[in-house]
């Protein structure tokens, strides 16, 4: 094994590694995302390079790594949210099941209906709690949905129902930070997506709210495929089945590009990583 993880062999190598850990991952598991030679640019700037990986269904996959390693950029590729950023450009292929997400015929709006997202800052709409949860259904134009039932079920699933059932008309922004984030999770799962992406969902929350969200993530992983970006390594060990470690490397001009160092079962990444960079990062020795 070479230390240079950017070699093309990363993909096969990692799959072999995964095959050795049948407890948490086996080759028979359904793959939801498959990244093939992904390079991501913002304008001329290469933000992430050479990513090859697979994300299995109904597991929690965590992206960890130092700031600027491109983990948030990569997660936003999974629902084509990066399309909103000017200058964004992706090379390579990102498969969602059998479909390349970046093929010409793909409608990004349809992609996002299947792949929900929760953000770093709780960002409820300035609307009532009820309308926040109902929003996704309303924009998809599903007329036959029993909205009251969807709202209740989603809020219950997000462990928020008991706290808000008597004030569904209250503004979503009137809730506490942790409640707001659970509202955002309820909003994301109301449309019954296939995948839920979470971009550092706990980074602006207190420890108790964080714990609640983490329990929720574990709970949701029975039904949903979850991809979570976190810079909290303990969180990755607590919630994730698979961990992908990203690092950043400066090029000749001093611009830092992120790349995937290695990925595998969380236990394996934290206890016996194959790469020195991973070892240094998870043991707290940076650089």
């Amino acid at each position: 094994m070479t230390d240079n993880s950017t070699e093309q062999s990363t993909d096969q190598k990692s799959i072999q590694e995964l095959a050795n850990y049948p407890d948490s991952y086996s080759e028979n598991d359904e793959t939801v995302f498959r990244a093939e030679n992904i390079n991501i640019y913002y304008g001329d700037f290469l933000a992430v390079r050479d990513v090859n990986m697979e994300i299995p269904a109904r597991k929690v996959t965590a992206f960890i790594g130092p700031s600027g390693c491109g983990k948030s950029t990569l997660i936003r590729c999974l629902n084509r949210l990066n399309d909103l950023i000017e200058g964004f450009c992706l090379e390579g292929r990102m498969f969602y099941h059998d479909q390349n997400l970046y093929a010409d015929e793909v409608d990004p709006v349809e992609v996002r209906r299947r792949i929900g997202m929760v953000f770093q800052q709780p960002n409820p709409f300035p609307k009532s709690i009820y309308n926040n949860v109902a929003y996704g259904i309303r924009v998809t134009g599903k007329k036959d949905a029993d909205m009251d039932e969807v709202v209740e079920r989603s809020l219950q699933r997000a462990a928020l129902w008991d706290e808000v059932k008597d004030k569904l008309g209250a503004n979503g922004l009137s809730l506490s930070g942790g409640q707001q984030q659970r509202l955002c999770i309820a909003r994301a799962i109301a449309t019954n997506p296939d995948v839920v992406l979470m971009d550092e969902p706990c980074s602006s929350l207190d420890p108790i709210s964080t714990l609640k969200i983490e329990e929720l993530i574990r709970d949701l992983s029975e039904e949903y495929t979850i991809v979570i970006v976190t810079h909290n390594m303990q969180q990755a060990t607590r919630v994730s089945d698979i961990t992908a470690f990203f690092n950043a490397q400066a090029n000749e001009e001093g611009k830092r590009s992120g790349y995937l160092v290695e990925y595998g079962p969380t236990e394996h990444i934290f206890n016996s990583p194959q790469q020195e960079a991973t070892q240094n990062y998870v043991s707290g020795q940076f650089g």
């Binding site: 629902n79 949210l81 909103l84 709006v109 349809e110 996002r112 209906r113 929900g116 997202m117 953000f119 770093q120 800052q121 960002n123 409820p124 709409f125 300035p126 609307k127 929003y135 996704g136 309303r138 924009v139 998809t140 955002c184 909003r187 994301a188 449309t191």
Partner: peptide
């Protein structure tokens, strides 16, 4: 109106004009 709020709407499968009409303008 914060970019995050637009992203939340788009992330739920709203088109950009729906995002403007339903979230950004009211806010």
């Amino acid at each position: 109106v914060p970019r995050q709020v637009r992203w939340a709407s788009v992330g739920l499968g709203a088109s950009r004009y729906e995002t403007v009409l339903r979230v950004v303008l009211p806010a």
